[in-house]
Nucleic acid binder design. Structure first.
Length: 493
RNA sequence: GCCAAGGUGGCAGAGUCCGGCCUAACGCAGCGGCCUGCAGAGCCGCCUACCGCCGGUUCAAAUCCGGCCCUUGGCUCCA
């Protein structure tokens, strides 16, 4: 049983066959650090995180690189806003920090490196020079453009026909270009104040002068074009030829198409074997995006629902399918997560109880574990179908509940197998955190809740149900859900 | 206009690559029952889908082919 993936380049689902299984190269097209991230970005990260985790789980050696675009006119547009700072670098640093925080909150596995554009200017210039030397690019007015008519395969990723493409890039550049579809590799000078002001908040004074960083180049002072960065960074940190390129589907054209053109024209090798595009997150029928203002930030989502629910949500639709964000869809994710978590806790409690015996063996429970592992694996191997994988865990959850409900003497080993399945697959592959304490005071809070529950138990034993219910209601108001079971009361924060 | 991806129950979402186990998975919501002092959780059961429309191929199609309609994304910064 092997892994199949949907490759945008071929338009088909194909068997995954990396060049070197010990060294699978994965590049995730990161984001421009001009604002806090939103759930749409988080979806891409979590999906690519799960892909990388699954590849590792299958035994591949994976090297994962994810970039930050820290040179961009939208960043320049925010200079002087609040305490963001007065320079492009300062604003970028602020949001890089914010994004790293979001990634940590979402429990993403760390990438090997998070390169930034600003520290790769020499490599970018080198690629542009190579392209000029090879005749794929030309200089005009201190800028350098890629000549799409020179690159035979242009359009192979997105299906675009060069002659049908209206124009790429700013209107002011059009006159300099030989062909409307040509795109900038290097842009002369600093950011035009007019371009930056388009993205600038109305509360701020508009920029008057050209702004943003510039670097010296063979063509004069200027800034790198957007598309070359990814070519430079993936080549620098991985190789001319990589196995997997992950990105949002809104970047297929022109960004990824242009990456292919630059990289392949420069190196002569195929740039990426598998192009995996994560479809977009939508709200009310349109994509969630910063420019539309209809977004939910990662920070707000994590704060309101917690990392596990957010991850469960973001993994609830396969990456090849667009996903809807709504009250209903996020609360479904919450239910799914809590169902898995409760079963995990139930199995843990049962295994820890005095009714768990080394010599008891239960075929149904053990079979359920085996079934769950198989179903999980075949779902993940089928194009990283994480929702299907979660469904496998939910089936195991039902089996655990049924078992613990029915039986008096527990199969210790069977329960541990179930627990390990939740931990290895739910935790290790899907990135959920089981039994995570919510903060440093959790222990004290837990002790206090136990104390209140003991008092409530005495009231219940004495038949004082009104008093018992009052205690339960007041705990609920504090965010503690109390549940009575045969073995006493339990609580969840 | 051009390019790309989709349209499956009230919602959400697998299945479509390799046609038959799909009288359509898992889940949410809803309904009934068990359990419970009550509630919750859990368990059992029910509910609603002829799989966008029309034609074709086939013994057999949600799955293959053709046409049409609709939605979303891209062609301008965008994960």
């Amino acid at each position: 049983m092997s892994l199949y993936v949907s490759n945008t380049l071929s338009g088909e689902r194909e068997p995954f066959e990396p060049d070197d299984p010990e060294n699978v190269l994965v590049y995730t097209c990161g984001l421009t650090v001009s604002d806090d991230s939103h759930l749409g970005h988080a979806r891409l990260w979590v999906q690519s995180d799960v892909m990388v985790r699954w590849l590792s789980h299958l035994g591949y050696g994976v090297r994962h690189v994810q970039n930050f675009t820290d040179v961009n006119e939208k960043i320049v547009a925010r200079t002087g806003e609040g305490d963001l700072g007065d320079t492009e670098q300062a604003v970028a640093r602020h949001y890089v920090e914010s994004v790293i925080e979001d990634m940590r909150d979402l429990n993403l596995d760390r990438a090997e490196v998070y390169p930034r554009v600003s520290e790769h200017i020499p490599e970018i210039i080198e690629i542009v020079e190579t392209l000029v030397e090879k005749g794929y690019a030309y200089e005009a007015g201190g800028s350098v453009y890629f000549d799409v008519t020179e690159f035979e395969d242009y359009g192979k990723l997105s299906g675009q026909d060069v002659e049908e493409i209206e124009s790429q890039g700013a209107e002011s550049d059009r006159a300099e270009k030989r062909h409307p579809a040509d795109f900038a590799l290097w842009k002369a000078g600093a950011v035009d104040p007019g371009d930056a002001n388009e993205h600038r908040s109305d509360d701020l004074p508009p920029l008057e002068e050209p702004a943003g960083q510039t670097w010296a180049s063979p063509w004069g002072e200027g800034r790198p074009g957007w598309h070359v960065e990814c070519s430079a960074m993936s080549t620098t940190h991985l190789d001319d030829s990589i196995d997997v390129h992950v990105g949002g589907q809104d970047l297929v054209f022109p960004h990824h198409e242009n990456e292919i053109a630059q990289s392949e024209a420069a190196s002569g090798d195929q740039f990426a074997t598998y192009w995996l595009h994560v479809r977009l997150l939508e709200t009310a029928g349109e994509k969630m995006s910063s420019s539309l203002g209809n977004y939910f930030t990662t920070k707000n989502a994590v704060e309101e629902f917690g990392p596990n629910v957010v991850r469960m949500f973001l993994v609830s639709t396969s990456y090849t399918q667009r996903q809807t964000y709504s009250e209903a869809t996020i609360s479904e994710a919450q239910e799914r997560w809590e169902r898995v978590e409760r079963a995990y806790e139930r199995a843990t409690d049962a295994a820890d109880s005095v009714d768990a015996y080394a010599k008891v063996e239960d075929d149904d429970l053990r079979a359920a574990v085996v079934d769950a592992r198989e179903a999980f694996t075949s779902s993940m191997n089928d194009d990283f179908n994480a929702r299907g994988a979660v469904s496998a865990l939910l089936e195991l959850a039902s089996a655990v509940h049924r078992y613990v409900d029915e039986v008096e003497a527990y199969d210790y080993r069977g329960l541990v197998d179930a627990i390990e399945t939740f931990e290895d697959l739910g935790g290790g592959v899907l990135g959920f955190q089981f039994g995570a304490a919510d903060g440093g005071d959790a222990t004290l809070a837990g002790d206090l809740v136990e104390l209140v529950l003991n008092i409530r138990e005495e009231e219940r034993a004495a038949g004082n149900y009104e008093r018992a219910d009052e205690l339960r209601d007041r705990l609920e108001a504090l965010g503690v859900t109390v549940e009575d079971t045969d073995d006493g009361s339990t609580y969840r924060l």
